[in-house]
Amino acid sequence: MTTNALKVTLLDTATGEPREAELLSSITETQLTDVEGEWKPALYDRFREFKRAGKPPAAWPGAENRHWDWRQKVEMLQGLLSHDGYCLTCQGMTEGLMLIDTSSYRCRLPENEKRNLVYIDYVENAPWNRPELKQAPRYRGIGSILVGAAIERSIAEEFKGRIGLHALPQAEAFYSATCGMTDLGPDTAKQGLRYYEMTAAQAEAFIAKGKNR
């Protein structure tokens, strides 16, 4: 994985001010340490508050991806040209992570059937940026920047901006409404998760929307 830093901007929700951040095309030991030392305890704190509020643990909105082990994922894919990692950092802290696959998946939309795309294997925000955990997120814009990075990568690979992913239920609205991706419905081969795909035209519209913000 190569490490090229790109300056990006997040919205600091506490102040309403933009905050400079860095997008890197790598996931290093620093990010894995942040996940293990900062993300996991923060997630546990939120879970404890949730339980103390008398809510059943089964209804915990953070359960959907609690089994994700970023260290294991990164180590398994180390050195493979087909997979790449991205991270978003702000003020020395990892705020978002993404793993993509540029080889194994093909488009399902009829107009692009069997054409190559960039598949987003995993994408996650730091727990304090996740509104579904019933809190005001610290930063906004992380998901859009990471999806934008996947689109840029797709363009660089000559896939014309086409991307695809299986969404966790909590993120479905983001991919359909915010990203403008096409919902191809539940996929029984992926635990019934809904599959979303973005065409070249949708990618262009997504990038144009970002520039007009």
Binding site: L80, L81, S82, S104
Partner: peptide
């Protein structure tokens, strides 16, 4: 692409 797939 071929190289990536071959390596994988």
């Amino acid at each position: 692409q071929a190289l990536r797939l071959y390596q994988l």
